[in-house]
Simulated assay, not measured.
Amino acid sequence: MELNGIKPGQGAKHAKRRVGRGIGSGIGKTAGRGHKGQKSRAGGYHKVGFEGGQMPMQRRLPKRGFKSHNLKFNAEVTLSALEQLGLAEVDLLALKTAGLVGQLAKNVKIIKTGELTRAVKLNGIAATAAAKSVIEAAGGSIA
């Protein structure tokens, strides 16, 4: 193979469509732009969502609520997940390595879903009031 012999693969290159070159070409006269109107003219176009002056869809529809950007840093862990984890001491790093919370999580809260029979000590992890009572009843503690 020589450098002067390299060429694109078969069918990789094709001629650019030449519009507006007479009726025989099949795309002459209006060149596929239809008749009249803003979109038929050179330089005439509009911004995304523009509906010809009519109130655009994104402004007609009502807005409700919002989604906090801090949600990705918060995580929840259930009591049943703690039970399956089977560790005596649980902290944020242990939950991340077990895959119970995402790697971006900074704040973790234990919620009361399921049962807990073993004593678990929580370090730097919050718990709901109901979950706290279950943890302490099982002999665990929250630090």
Rank of each mutant, 00 (worst) to 15 (best):
residue 92 L to E: 07
residue 69 H to Y: 01
residue 99 G to S: 11
residue 65 G to Y: 05
residue 114 G to H: 05
residue 122 L to Q: 09
residue 110 I to F: 02
residue 76 E to Q: 13
residue 123 N to V: 11
residue 75 A to P: 05
residue 86 G to N: 15
residue 122 L to D: 08
residue 111 I to M: 04
residue 117 T to G: 00
residue 69 H to S: 12
residue 94 A to H: 03
residue 93 L to C: 00
residue 111 I to T: 10
residue 58 Q to V: 13
residue 105 A to D: 10
residue 91 D to V: 03
residue 117 T to A: 09
residue 103 Q to A: 10
residue 66 F to H: 15
residue 119 A to C: 05
residue 80 S to C: 06
residue 98 A to E: 00
residue 69 H to A: 12
residue 104 L to S: 15
residue 89 E to W: 00
residue 69 H to Q: 05
residue 84 Q to E: 12
residue 119 A to D: 04
residue 95 L to C: 01
residue 108 V to L: 02
residue 69 H to R: 12
residue 97 T to E: 14
residue 69 H to F: 01
residue 83 E to Q: 15
residue 116 L to I: 12
residue 123 N to K: 13
residue 100 L to P: 07
residue 77 V to F: 02
residue 119 A to H: 04
residue 102 G to D: 14
residue 124 G to C: 08
residue 86 G to R: 12
residue 81 A to V: 03
residue 103 Q to Y: 02
residue 101 V to R: 07
residue 100 L to Q: 07
residue 69 H to K: 14
residue 65 G to S: 10
residue 96 K to R: 14
residue 87 L to M: 08
residue 71 L to G: 02
residue 112 K to V: 04
residue 67 K to F: 06
residue 75 A to L: 06
residue 78 T to D: 08
residue 121 K to R: 11
residue 78 T to I: 06
residue 109 K to A: 13
residue 71 L to E: 14
residue 111 I to P: 01
residue 66 F to E: 14
residue 61 L to Y: 08
residue 74 N to M: 10
residue 97 T to L: 05
residue 79 L to M: 07
residue 103 Q to H: 05
residue 110 I to S: 02
residue 89 E to H: 07
residue 100 L to W: 04
residue 96 K to T: 10
residue 116 L to R: 01
residue 92 L to R: 11
residue 76 E to L: 14
residue 85 L to T: 08
residue 82 L to P: 12
residue 123 N to C: 00
residue 93 L to I: 08
residue 99 G to C: 11
residue 83 E to I: 04
residue 82 L to E: 11
residue 66 F to M: 12
residue 94 A to D: 04
residue 108 V to Y: 01
residue 101 V to Y: 06
residue 84 Q to D: 11
residue 72 K to W: 00
residue 106 K to M: 07
residue 92 L to P: 03
residue 64 R to F: 14
residue 101 V to I: 15
